[in-house]
């Protein structure tokens, strides 16, 4: 098990390095360059020259990358001139909110999708399973922001129960948590439609497996067969999907934050993209990618812990 973890950890570090190279390369291969983007079209040649020297942009790209990486390792991700704040402090402010939003939606959707998939798998091809599958596939086929709009129309316009924007979130003490309900619900429905499909499919596979038939033939109580033989195996294969879904969940958070004006890292990133605020773009991509890789790693280790066969592959 230790060897497995060490090997996966090594792979993860390499993957992070490749991501930094790709993103750094993309940002610096730009037409027009970083300086103009930061200083604007009206900057004097002198200002451009000074900024270039100050930021070390006249150095070879490899050296610049080395410097950036060295600083990043030390926790210094640069400075946003647009927002006049260090990228590190921006991230410290915005990332926890997104973690709260995406994390609670993720946990909630797992808590819904696993029992739902298990139930659908048992009732497979009956009318209620078909109806639920159709509903889930419809949610799955919907742009997430449209799902959010439908929730806004129903729960904020028709029945004025919940606020349709979350821009006030985290701005002061005693924030109204009701602003979180619609964004979390939107993300959660999207995730459930994605996870429950896998859970249903793997439940069906397991219900047809030999070990389940054997357990039934031995006279094990149906409930115990379901919980010990079907649920455990289905969950352990769904765990991988959960790990792999982290980028999907974070992508969903970006668009949901834009829709509800939720001041999270997705909104920060979107605004930075429109302003061409490169230090912020780089910092955000680095942090969310590391988060994704750590999530995948955790899922792989959880999978190996749940299913001993994996460790020796």
């Amino acid at each position: 098990m230790t060897a497995y973890i060490v090997r996966r950890l090594g792979q993860a570090v390499i993957v992070v390095l490749i991501v930094t190279v790709v993103v750094f390369g993309l940002l610096h291969a730009l037409p027009g360059g970083l300086v103009r983007a930061q200083l604007g079209p009206k900057a004097t040649p002198y200002a451009v020259h000074q900024f270039t020297i100050q930021e070390g942009l006249n150095k070879p790209l490899v050296v610049q990358y080395g410097i950036w990486l060295w600083h990043a390792v030390q926790g210094n991700l640069g400075f946003s001139y647009k927002l006049n704040q260090s990228v590190g402090s921006l991230l410290a402010e915005y990332v926890p909110r997104t973690l709260l939003l995406a994390g609670s939606a993720f946990l909630l959707s797992v808590a819904i999708a696993i029992p739902l998939g298990l139930w659908q798998g048992q009732r497979r091809n009956r009318p209620d399973d078909h109806a639920l599958s159709a509903l889930m596939l419809t949610f799955y086929s919907m742009p997430s922001f449209l799902l959010g709009v439908i929730l806004i129309v129903v729960l904020s316009l028709w029945i004025p129960a919940l606020p349709s924007t979350a821009s006030a979130f985290g701005s002061g003490l005693g924030t109204d948590v009701r602003v979180l309900v619609l964004p979390v619900a939107t993300l959660c429905l999207g995730n459930v439609s994605y996870f429950s499909r896998y859970m249903r499919a793997s439940t069906i596979d397991n219900l047809l497996a030999d070990h389940v038939r054997t357990a039934r033939a031995k006279g094990v109580a149906p409930r115990r067969v379901l919980l010990r033989h079907v649920l455990r195996n289905s969950v352990s294969s769904t765990v991988t999907v959960l790990g792999l879904s982290i980028p999907y969940v974070l992508s969903g958070a970006l668009i949901i934050e834009a829709l509800f004006n939720f001041p999270g890292v997705g909104l920060l990133f979107w605004n930075a993209a429109q302003d061409r605020d490169y230090p912020v773009l780089l910092g955000v991509v680095l942090v969310i990618t590391v988060a994704t890789i750590v999530g995948n790693l955790a899922a792989d280790i959880a999978y190996a812990a749940l299913d001993p066969r994996i460790r020796y592959r």
């Binding site: 992070v16 991501v19 982290i246 999907y248 992508s251 969310i288 990618t289 994704t292």
Partner: peptide
């Protein structure tokens, strides 16, 4: 692996 671990919408 590296490109897949950047959430696609951010990319």
């Amino acid at each position: 692996d590296a490109l897949l671990s950047i959430p696609f919408l951010f990319f």
